[in-house]
Design a protein around this nucleic acid. Structure first.
Lengths: 227, 227
DNA sequence: AAAGATTTTTAATTTAAATTAAAATATTTT
DNA sequence: AAAATATTTTAATTTAAATTAAAAATCTTT
């Protein structure tokens, strides 16, 4: 695998995360990247030219970018590193899930495939990181799981769900979830949808709370195996 | 603690390692540093000016450098990080001691005190790394132990020694030690000194070998508690 | 103590990445 | 479809670090 600079790895990762979710040949535009990476459009254009030179992206000026197969491979490997480190930090070093982001951002750029494969083995090949994000395996394959947004959960047809992950890693949001007791793996019951702010009434054990769309739009869930 | 660049941390660490062993107000010179760091004298001078600006070193042009208290603190913290990571790589991820150097060189620059303190706790506060180098604690204090070079061991007065550490981390040297079965903690018996190449006859269990000065000059030993 | 050798510093360049402001191109609105 | 607005690119600077070659200082030798 060719060696990339830290900035290059970060760009590829960000492009991957902004293109993946959407349709086939969708392009990410310059501004989206400059915002996601907290930099300016000018800096982004500069870097896009370099990445295009190296055949890591398909770049159409004024239109946007896409990853090449090579670029996608690198982006997925960076994600793999990031998520394995996050898993290690939370499960072994006892970091809280709202604090691991910055540290994993640094650790993910350590350049050693052997390190990552040994770390993966040591951690016993986890499939999901502490935020519920899938960890690609050494071949770059993601584990499959059908999840939906809590906000899209069909209350009428069914009403039990298990928390699978979160869409934002914003520290305040994560601390808020800690505070109310929501964590990955928790089984909740969705009792009612309330029009005001698209709120939902959810409950588990002896708890019953109302959360609005700013919460439900950021939580992924799946249906339990045995209803 | 003020934040340093990777290059700055490396310079401080190298100065520390080249000044520490010798007398009180010894100075390291530019050329020593350029060789130790695989760079040119010109680059070193540039960096020395910056470090001096930041009051991390005492720099006397044409004479050499020394660390200030502040610089020493930073250098020791960098060593702490490097050695804790080496310990982790060998004891937990099962790396061999000849392979950890490059990776630890990268890991030591991850910027998070909390990470290091949690790692230290997780590792159960080890005092020596896999090469036998002392790991400073969170206060910057080194464990104390009286070791001597195997080549200086007084064969006549006493003849048992325990391997404490190695002075070079050269991979071929370490693999050689693996090959002949010498490892940290091994108790050996020093049977004889032989003038040719300052060789020594050493033995343990059913093994008996002769090693010359290029080996004995790079091995640290100490005397067993109960002779 | 002067000549020659070695070491150090200075100064001019190079590279990767970021920033800013101006110019060019798209998109949206009327 | 032209005008107004958004976005994107270009070009000129900035910063950290490294390199190279020339100039300056120091050390060694006689």
């Amino acid at each position: 695998m060719a060696k990339l600079t830290i900035a290059e790895e970060n760009y590829l990762k960000t492009i991957f995360l902004n293109v993946d979710s959407q349709q086939e040949d969708c392009l990410v535009n310059t501004n989206t990247l400059s915002q996601a990476m907290n930099t300016t459009a000018g800096s982004v254009t500069d870097m896009l030219k370099k990445l295009s030179e190296k055949e890591l992206i398909h770049y159409i000026p004024y239109k946007g970018v896409n990853l090449t197969e090579k670029g996608k491979k690198m982006a997925i490997f960076t994600l793999r590193k990031q998520r394995l480190w996050e898993y290690f930090l939370v499960t072994h070093l006892k970091f809280s899930w709202d604090k691991v982001h910055e540290i994993a951002e640094q650790l993910e750029h350590i350049d050693s495939e052997e390190l990552i494969e040994k770390l993966d083995e040591y951690l016993n090949y986890p499939e999901y990181d502490p935020h519920g994000d899938p960890i690609p395996n050494a071949k770059g394959e993601f584990p499959q799981r059908k999840t939906i947004l809590l906000s899209d959960f069909p209350v009428n047809t069914y009403n039990k769900a298990i928390i699978a992950g979160v869409l934002t890693h914003n520290a305040d949001f994560l601390k808020f979830l800690d505070r109310i007791g929501i964590h990955i793996g928790l089984e909740i019951q969705i009792t009612e949808k309330i029009p005001f702010e698209d709120s939902m009434l959810i409950q588990w054990k002896n708890k019953e709370i109302i959360i609005n769309r700013s919460i439900t739009n950021n939580i992924l869930v799946y249906k339990p195996e045995n209803p």
